[in-house]
Design a protein around this nucleic acid. Structure first.
Length: 156
DNA sequence: GCCAACGTTGGC
DNA sequence: GCCAACGTTGGC
């Protein structure tokens, strides 16, 4: 099994929004980048774990943990002319964009981006590299362990 | 709102 | 297949 980091804009879907969804599950729609799509299509497996990351917001950082709850399937929003994610070049016959379902595992103590940056063991994390724009990135097991065991400890 | 970095598009 | 122009991302 693999680990991931998935970005969401909290104005769109925050960790608290996810918690109120039926079955605490949501389709990770709106990915319009081939590399991120291919991660979902080729490498994600049901049961993989991912950090739920808040981006493009006043306080960027990791807000919780989700698990991958489905295989990749066509993203409905690409067919909807009213959606901001509509893609006129896609078709039902040959869908261009996919999504997976993710399910909340837990809301964790918030780990600020600045804290991630200050953690030497995470220096090579994708999310911390300059101009990282991928909305889905792999996280290696060592990085996962550093974050969950060292940075998510509730303050005492 | 700025701007750097990167992906995509389309003319040639 | 090159590459300039353009759009988008996302932290600050």
């Amino acid at each position: 099994m693999r680990y991931w980091l998935m970005k969401s804009e909290p104005a769109d879907c925050s960790i608290d929004d996810l918690a109120t969804m039926p079955n605490q599950t949501v389709a990770w729609y709106g990915v319009r980048n081939y590399q991120a799509r291919n991660f979902m299509r080729d490498q994600m497996k049901i049961g993989d774990l991912a950090f739920f990351y808040h981006s493009s917001c006043p306080r960027p950082g990791i807000a919780g943990i989700v698990c991958i709850a489905s295989a990749a399937y066509p993203d409905d929003t690409q067919f909807d002319p009213k959606s901001r994610y509509f893609d006129p070049k896609s078709s039902q016959e040959e869908p261009r964009w996919l999504n997976v379902d993710v399910k909340l595992v837990e809301k964790t103590p918030f780990v600020d981006l600045s804290v991630l940056r200050d953690t030497e063991a995470l220096a090579s994390m994708r999310i911390l590299q300059k101009a990282n724009r991928l909305s889905i990135t792999p996280v290696d097991a060592e990085e996962w362990r550093t974050i969950t065991t060292r940075l998510m400890k509730p303050k005492t």
